[in-house]
Design a binder for these strands. Sequence first.
DNA 1: AAAATTAGTTGCATATGTCAATTAATTATT
DNA 2: AATAATTAATTGACATATGCAACTAATTTT
Lengths: 147, 147
Amino acid sequence: MEKQNLALMELGRLMREIFRGFKKRIGEQNQEDIKITAEQFHLLNAINLKQEEVIQKDMAEIMGKDKSAILRLIDSLEEKELVRRAVDKNDRRKNYLMVTKTGERVLKQYQIIAFQMMEDIQQGLSVSDLNTFRRIIEHIKDNARKL
Amino acid sequence: MEKQNLALMELGRLMREIFRGFKKRIGEQNQEDIKITAEQFHLLNAINLKQEEVIQKDMAEIMGKDKSAILRLIDSLEEKELVRRAVDKNDRRKNYLMVTKTGERVLKQYQIIAFQMMEDIQQGLSVSDLNTFRRIIEHIKDNARKL
DNA sequence: AAAATTAGTTGCATATGTCAATTAATTATT
DNA sequence: AATAATTAATTGACATATGCAACTAATTTT
């Protein structure tokens, strides 16, 4: 039991380290620029990634959170003018989520940080290792989704 | 840039899925028994794992959190009588953290859940895959620490 | 003895998140 | 067409988590 358990713990600790590093680098960001939290970044990124139009409900599903949590995250992003809600003309219950130009710019800055972090984190790993790692992550993710 | 970036995102998402699953299973726990949150479990487990005596400061370092965050987590664990603080006789600034019998019992219950989760998550992966995965995690962890 | 350091504590602010109830809009049913 | 059911978003109440800065008490350094 010990080993597997440890693996889970290690993964958690690992993520905290990475998260900590990410926050630290964000903190070192240009002061005058708009700052967002990791969760805000994550949501912004997820909206941006989607090819199709998305509404709040979709994001709640994608991010595995309550719709009210998403609503408040979007509130915070809208306040910073990184995202706007646009009502669907055909179904006025729906708000399409639109990333603003500022949103794209800020997102890009954060992506650069994330990219740099990935580079640093992957230092010293072979291409084959990385491929195996990605494959396993995908596999685990599928399993985790069913939990 | 895309691929590496995705790997980071995937890892984050993966952890959230696992964490979500863990919380869900915790929620399904036996009503009459003492319930703890995921963070409480994590701290309790970390204290328990340590071979040497630990004080709050140590746990803050180990868990990568502010000492006040740890303090409050310990408050909550102490309230449930899962942990006790014992003042160091030689240095009365220090509180040694002791897991109670109840703490051990509760911890064991949650470890079983965590263990079961690990089993489910690892379904379908070969032993060699798992070993590679652990090795990479270790490597990444070393890199992450330097971030 | 005074100054500096250390461990723990407290107050305050913020972020995040869930659940349940409510509102408004739309769709299905009688 | 009127009523009922469903859907998306919102709000309120509440719990958890976390960091920062200021403070206290104990110990160590100067």
